[in-house]
Design a binder for these strands. Structure first.
Lengths: 197, 197
DNA sequence: GTTTTTGTTGATTGACGAGTCAATAAACTT
DNA sequence: AAGTTTATTGACTCGTCAATCAACAAAAAC
């Protein structure tokens, strides 16, 4: 049956299965068997393409991060003015592309992975830095010298909402999550807690 | 050598060792051997007192949570007025008793544990509810109907700062962390981002 | 002074899982 | 047609680790 050019297909299936398994298990304690089974192949093949489990985890992380990055770019492309661009970044952070229970569950575990795997830490740092610089660029014209503080606050708040979501039952409520973060933003840039628009 | 009344001493040593091991490893992937060795006893004895590893983890969680609870109560006992009481809760959340790298590392992993162990989820929920109700009681006289939103925001922000800390190198900077959260509070209750006092 | 309770451990069991390997087969190359 | 590369897997190795057990020791109870 060996059709050629399977590598990217298999890898993609494994990445997807890895995220799903970690999300479903709520832990990094998933076996290569489970991942391979979900992806519809043998464990030997999974090892063949990724070498070891850690590489599968890292590929899954890169995938989640790149999806998120693409969504942010997409959202920014159609948003005008600092206020709207900030709102767009926040809204997209809780949009259906990333704010799904399996992804949230995986996200939490990527933080744990980053404690022991330097490459995972590096990836998470890149995400944090990029988010921070995106926020800073729009915040500076609005709050000047406080931009740095506000950006840190927003970053921490977004992460906090994410992990709290991992603990709740039921499907994530992205709208509510976004509202919460938008309220923080409004307060810092308009001096009000109200969240209109 | 069998001195009597060892049980509480051994258990306390194991709880402490469990937190230290999880914090040091940055993961729940610690063996009973490691924990027992650090606590100065055999693995068999650890099993004798706790039955299984999960119970050790849960005991460690209860310990961390109870320390935090005690510190909050202590801080509230000497704080007057809603503003000061809120500030006290935030400050104590980042005080040296709980905001230490091993504890922060363990904390992150307790979130992961809560994904699979119902009792862990229950404990974390109790912490969240208690924090929320503490905040709510002081926020209501200050912001009325917005109290609920602000409490949710503060809770998420505190958690966010915690997990971000788990990712940074070097000793935690509790003062900076508290400042960040206090700025959010000021903004929501005073309508300003500035953080005085 | 024997029996019971409490403390303690080395050795063992039993399960599980990551990673390897040899083997098979289909497609491409020459 | 022979040889090479790519795809694929079942079976196996080797290590690890949670949990158990039998045994020993000292204090307490009777």
């Amino acid at each position: 049956m060996p059709k050629l050019g399977m590598e990217p297909i298999r890898k993609a299936a494994l990445v997807k299965a890895t995220i799903a398994e970690i999300g479903a298990a709520g832990s990094l304690d998933v076996t290569v068997s489970q991942i391979a089974r979900r992806a519809g192949m043998s464990t030997a093949l999974a090892h063949h393409y990724f070498g070891n489990k850690e590489q599968m985890f890292l590929a899954a992380m890169r995938h989640v991060l790149s999806i998120y990055g693409a969504e942010v770019r997409g959202a920014l492309a159609t948003a005008d003015g600092p206020r709207e661009r900030l709102r767009a970044i926040i809204r997209v952070s809780f949009a259906a592309g990333s704010f799904r229970s399996e992804v949230v569950g995986a996200w939490l575990n990527f933080y744990v992975l980053a404690q022991t795997v330097p490459e995972a830490k590096r990836l998470l740092r890149i995400y944090q830095r990029r988010l921070r610089s995106n926020l800073l660029a729009e915040l500076r014209p609005l709050v000047g010298g406080d931009a740095s503080d506000v950006a840190d606050g927003l970053g921490a708040l977004i992460d906090g909402v994410y992990i709290r979501e991992a603990l709740s039952d039921g499907a994530p409520d992205g709208a509510a999550a976004a509202r919460l973060v938008l309220a923080y933003l409004s307060c810092r840039i308009d001096g009000t807690g109200a969240n209109r628009g």
